[in-house]
């Protein structure tokens, strides 16, 4: 994989790169962005397949068909577009596709069907909290943030769960059930022999 971290500001300033097409020795070569999504490498020609202005959310959905993430606000306010980039939950609507060059992305499609977080969200139903899902539009974003949290901190306190997930909006208001689903996911990870800290 290339070490080049995308179109540099210096190159852009020197006008060598226009609309993502590198001009060298008078010849144009499109820059190729390489993004690994759920373990599979995708190469995208800048200026052809994608534009420098395209967000990661746009490219994942429109070019690569990963429609699990949702674009609801397109301005970093709702969290529905959350994916995991190099182990960290990021807002894919606030990340340019070219910024993801050379990075590894995990989308909800990359989670196992029996992923403990997915299962816990689906199963959440004990009295007093309601369901963790209603309309489901925000759910993939919450699941990915919860997954990133539990990867780093397999046994979070309720305060840590709230801190990690308060960048997300759920207009159906499933917050208490979502928080409990994350706790249950943590228990599932521990039960599966995960690294739950005691």
């Amino acid at each position: 994989m290339t070490e080049d971290k995308g179109v540099s500001m210096e190159a852009a300033k020197k006008n060598q790169v226009k609309n993502g097409i590198r001009e060298e020795n008078g010849e144009s070569t499109p820059y190729i962005v390489k993004i690994k999504v759920n373990g599979i490498l995708h190469e995208l020609k800048v200026g052809y397949d994608i534009q420098p202005s395209h967000t990661l959310a746009h490219v994942l959905r429109e070019n690569l068909g990963f429609t699990g993430l949702k674009v609801a606000c397109d301005e970093g306010a709702c969290g529905a577009c959350t994916v995991i980039m190099d182990g960290k939950a990021v807002l894919s609507c606030m990340t340019l596709a070219i910024e993801a060059d050379g990075r590894e992305i995990l989308t909800i499609e990359g989670l196992d069907k029996n992923d403990p977080v997915v299962e816990a969200f689906a199963e959440q139903s004990e009295p007093g909290y309601g369901t963790a899902i209603q309309c489901g539009y925000c759910t993939p974003g919450f699941v990915m943030s919860a997954r990133a949290l539990l990867d780093k901190n397999p046994d979070p306190s309720m305060e840590e769960v709230k801190e990690a997930l308060s960048g997300h909006l759920c207009r159906c208001g499933c917050y208490p059930a979502i928080a409990h689903a994350v706790v249950h996911a943590s228990e599932k990870i521990a039960a599966k022999g995960g690294s739950k800290n005691e």
């Binding site: 429609t67 989308t107 069907k113 689906a122 369901t131 963790a132 899902i133 489901g136 699941v143």
Partner: peptide
Amino acid sequence: YRPRMDGLEKASGETEYIDDIALK
């Protein structure tokens, strides 16, 4: 008290909404 019937479909991101269908 029990899980929603569409819980797994929605939790795994498989549910399609209009914007997931209206693609080029």
